[in-house]
Amino acid sequence: MPERQRADARRNYARILAVAEQEVAAHGANASLEQIARVAGVGSATVRRHFPTRRALLEAVSHQRVDTLCERAGELAGTDDGRAALLEWLGDLLAYCVSARGLADVLTYDAEAEAAHQNACSARMEEAGEPLLRRAVRDGAVSGEVTVADLVTLVVGIALATEHHPDPRAAAERLFTLAVAGLSPQR
């Protein structure tokens, strides 16, 4: 939100964002923009002026969670075991995606995103995870062909595939463990 906005516009932005956080937590990425406007006490045009796309609104709602995950990647970058650090960060990402409805949707690829509004959350996650992946590759624990985008896509896919499961966290963790271990039996 630009600082040079009028005071009432800044208040509207803050109120819309607070309501959106509640609505997204309750209804996920498909939370009604009209309901958000109604509860915030503004018109739907005001919501769209501040958040021109649903993705822009979801990114704003997810901003703090993304910051936390980026900070966590920085903390883990200094640990001794590159593979363990990468897997711990991906596990944290998965836990956030499962518990914070809407975050997985923010991190999905959007072919229709305007060039001016590419997926900033995904870009930040990729930047934060890159040192962890490089270290795991250097340690020989991960193939050099793997990208952070691949890993984020895998986690997002698992979170989206399990969000309606009776126990989404357990189902997501099981699938993530399976993806990491592979399909072959352990020897």
Rank of each mutant, 00 (worst) to 15 (best):
R6A: 15
A7N: 07
A7C: 00
R10D: 00
R10A: 13
R10S: 07
R11I: 08
R11F: 12
N12C: 06
N12D: 14
Y13L: 08
Y13N: 08
A14D: 14
A14Y: 06
R15S: 04
R15E: 11
R15Y: 04
R15C: 00
R15F: 02
I16C: 05
I16K: 03
A18Y: 00
A20K: 06
E21C: 10
E21N: 02
Q22S: 09
E23C: 02
V24N: 06
A25L: 04
A25V: 00
A25H: 00
H27N: 15
H27G: 01
G28I: 09
A29G: 15
A31I: 03
A31V: 05
A31R: 02
A31W: 03
S32G: 07
L33F: 05
E34V: 14
E34H: 09
I36R: 04
I36N: 02
I36Q: 04
I36T: 10
I36C: 03
A37K: 02
A37R: 03
R38G: 02
V39P: 01
G41I: 04
V42I: 08
V42A: 07
S44C: 00
S44V: 14
V47L: 05
R48W: 08
R48Y: 14
H50R: 06
F51S: 03
T53L: 02
T53K: 03
R54G: 01
R55Y: 08
L58R: 02
A60L: 05
S62C: 12
S62F: 03
H63R: 14
H63W: 06
V66I: 15
D67S: 09
T68S: 08
L69N: 07
C70N: 03
E71N: 11
A73D: 08
A73I: 10
D80F: 03
D80C: 05
D80G: 14
D81R: 10
G82N: 13
R83Q: 10
A85M: 02
L86N: 04
L86S: 02
L87W: 07
E88W: 00
E88V: 09
L90C: 09
L90D: 06
L90G: 04
G91R: 05
G91N: 10
D92W: 09
L93H: 09
L93N: 10
L94A: 06
L94C: 08
L94R: 08
A95R: 13
Y96R: 05
C97P: 04
V98I: 10
S99K: 03
S99P: 00
R101Y: 04
G102F: 06
G102V: 08
L103F: 06
L103S: 01
A104C: 05
D105P: 04
V106A: 13
V106N: 07
V106D: 06
V106L: 03
L107D: 09
Y109P: 11
Y109S: 13
D110L: 11
D110W: 07
A111H: 14
E112I: 11
E112T: 15
A113G: 12
E114P: 10
E114Y: 12
E114N: 13
A115D: 14
A116Q: 13
N119Q: 12
A120G: 13
C121F: 03
S122G: 15
R124I: 09
R124D: 13
M125I: 15
A128G: 10
A128K: 12
G129H: 13
E130A: 15
L132W: 10
L132A: 11
L133M: 05
R134E: 15
R135V: 04
R135D: 09
R135G: 08
A136D: 02
R138M: 09
